[in-house]
Simulated assay, not measured.
Amino acid sequence: MFRGFVAAGLPPDQFWALTPRQYLIAAEAALETAHRNRMVLAWTTAILGRAKDVPALDSLIGRDRRTPAEATAELHASMQAYRQVATERGQVRSWKEWLH
């Protein structure tokens, strides 16, 4: 089971924390996502193979339009929101507690 869990792309450190039902739900979701990704890749490959004018790669993959400063500010805001929720739930630990 562990090998399948990791092969499905799920984090190994979460394996023992899951119940068998949660394991099945996570594994099924990971397999569905992998299947969907393969179908999108196959479709894109087929379409591009037929295209007379191949679009620029940037137009296909979409670049992050944020500046580094904007991305950093967004990350900091997300981390502040997370810390606030974790504090309200009593889940914030000191560095010493993390080490043990």
Rank of each mutant, 00 (worst) to 15 (best):
A51Y: 05
E28D: 14
R3M: 00
L57D: 08
A73M: 11
M1N: 14
G9Y: 00
H100E: 14
T44Y: 02
A71L: 14
E88K: 08
A69H: 09
A26P: 00
N37M: 13
D53M: 00
P20Q: 09
D53H: 08
A42K: 07
V54S: 07
K52P: 00
A7Q: 05
L60P: 07
H100D: 12
F2S: 08
A7R: 03
E28F: 10
R66W: 13
T67V: 15
L10M: 04
G90W: 01
A77Q: 12
A8W: 00
R21W: 11
A51V: 08
T67R: 12
F2P: 01
W43T: 10
L60E: 12
P12R: 11
A17D: 11
A27L: 15
L75C: 03
R65H: 13
T67S: 15
L24V: 08
W98A: 05
E70D: 15
E88W: 02
Q91L: 08
R36M: 11
P11A: 07
A51I: 01
T87I: 01
Q80A: 15
G90Q: 00
V54Q: 03
I25W: 06
H100Y: 10
A7P: 02
R50Q: 13
W95D: 07
I47F: 10
A8C: 09
P55S: 07
R21V: 13
P12M: 07
A71Y: 13
E74Q: 15
G4Q: 14
Q80S: 03
R93Y: 05
Q84P: 00
T67L: 11
E32Y: 04
L57Y: 11
T72K: 14
N37V: 04
K52H: 01
R93E: 01
A29D: 09
A27P: 00
M79Y: 09
F15Q: 04
G9D: 05
P20K: 06
Q22Y: 12
